[in-house]
């Protein structure tokens, strides 16, 4: 589904990713764990197509297409979804209006019929109920005045509505208390299927108690340092990232 080959990325003149190789198969959950500054968020933004990241070497293939040649909106239509670490507040655009615009833009690009208002509201209501969210929230501006937990839940709602194929979760656990974390993880788990894949990017092992990975990678100093099974996450929890710094760089 996703294939990253020898990816080198420079941000503001500094090389942040120094040759990433990663392959995610359909139906699998891959976790990328790493310390602060290891390039985790850079990887997620590069996947989603944010400006300001210079790809100096390497390629990314998504569903057989050259991902790096696609605009962010086309990546979304092709089935890539990034759940933001810091969801952006957009005052003046109601969440409902935002969801409707997004879902119909994506459907249009996928060659599907746009949803009429009735069908849209029905779908929205159903997804809200699944996530235990209050419909009142949808009338407010996108993420405006939302708590940390509400913002993350809103990300999962968008994910559920857009039905992507690959979900990149960027530090989805940050700023969440344990109850919010459980709800968000349940929302994510409800979407697991043999056709869908996940790339779970996190600093802590905690989230992986709720979203069980098939494969765990350790990202440090811009490179995948180690790949293993779920037991690797537990090992990191116990011993920390100290072993992955090499060259005497401080943790």
């Amino acid at each position: 589904m996703l294939k990253i080959e020898n990816l080198h990325v420079t941000v503001a003149g500094r090389e942040v990713l120094k040759g990433i190789d990663l392959s995610v198969e359909a139906g699998k959950v891959h976790a990328i764990m790493g310390p602060n500054g290891s390039g985790k968020s850079t990887l997620s933004y590069v996947l989603a197509g944010r400006e300001g990241y210079e790809i100096t070497k390497g390629r990314i293939t998504f569903m057989g297409q050259d991902l790096l040649a696609m605009k962010p909106e086309d990546r979304a239509a092709a089935g890539l979804f990034l759940a933001f670490q810091y969801p952006v507040e957009i005052p003046g655009v109601s969440t409902t209006m935002f969801l409707k615009t997004a879902i119909n833009a994506v459907r249009k690009k996928r060659g599907e019929k746009e949803l009429d208002p009735v069908a849209f509201l029905k779908l929205q209501k159903q997804k809200l109920a699944q996530l235990g969210m209050d419909a009142e929230m949808l009338k407010r501006g996108v993420n405006v005045g939302f708590s940390g937990g509400e913002k993350k839940r809103n990300e999962v709602l968008q994910m559920a509505m857009l039905e992507p194929k690959l979900m990149v979760l960027d530090e989805t656990d940050s700023g969440l208390d344990i109850d919010a974390l459980k709800t968000v993880a349940e929302g994510v788990n409800a979407m697991r299927s043999p056709e869908r894949s996940f790339l779970v990017i996190t600093h802590y092992q905690r989230l992986l108690n709720y979203i069980k990975p098939d494969v765990v990678h350790v990202l440090a100093q811009g490179k995948i340092q180690k790949t293993g099974g779920p037991e690797l996450a537990l090992l990191l929890e116990e011993k920390g990232y100290a072993g992955f710094y090499g060259d005497g760089e401080a943790a």
Binding site: K71, F84, V106, K109
Partner: peptide, 8 residues
Amino acid sequence: FYLQSRGI
């Protein structure tokens, strides 16, 4: 970018 990343 947030809006574009949602397909808009």
